[in-house]
Amino acid sequence: MKVLVAVKRVIDYNVKVRVKADNSDVDLTNVKMAMNPFCEIAVEEAVRLKEKGIASEIVVVSIGPKVAQEQIRTALALGADRGILIETEEKLEPLTVAKLLKGVVEKEQPQIVLMGKQTIDSDNNQTGQMLGALTGMPQGTFASEVAVDGDKVNVTREIDGGLRTVALNLPAIVTTDLRLNEPRYASLPNIMKAKRKPLDTTTPADLGVEVKSTLSLVKVTPPAERSAGIKVDSVATLVDKLKNDAKVL
């Protein structure tokens, strides 16, 4: 079974994000970039499917600038077999990404498409669902467990108030949630081996998709700074503050 995994290059989760002085965008100068954490989980799940003998080939795809190859190489080091970079410098919106991925799905014909439920840069949580709509494939979002059973995949989803398991006919789309697995580190011997794995580059034009943003970014501002707390000397003052200043009582 072939598994397609989509990964995105985003600002590193650990980086304290700063806004440009002119409020035009987030400042990405000299900022560490890394694979989106939910995508790491998707890669890990694909590798586990391969280790279990369920997946036979893992194809990893990323969309973005040439440097996004780094994240594809990471996925190859983690166990993916080959990579595809759809190279573009344009800003991408979920619908465009879904259209591009649809192009790859049509070409590669994977049985499972694994992807993060959202990326931590724009937090849209839309691409998997849109890809489902565009391809007509069933979708299991917010996965905390993925079990392939013959020509079906059972996906346990994290929903408000509990878990819901859905059985999807293959081919299907699965978007990953945090508790699905704990991704491994890329081992150095595997990083060396990954250098020899194939990585093809294509363009949105090759896939017949026009990358055009319909949104314009007006202004980016950091969240308001929280002011320091105060100490009160008695319960009476506390109650008074809660009533009259905080107005929560």
């Binding site: 650990n14 890394a34 890329a186 150095l188």
Partner: peptide
């Protein structure tokens, strides 16, 4: 590795992994 001093290793791919 060739010298046999080291048998396995990992490298951080993100600041989270480094931490």
């Amino acid at each position: 590795m060739e010298e046999g001093w080291v048998v396995d290793g990992v490298i951080s791919q993100s600041e989270t992994q480094a931490a």
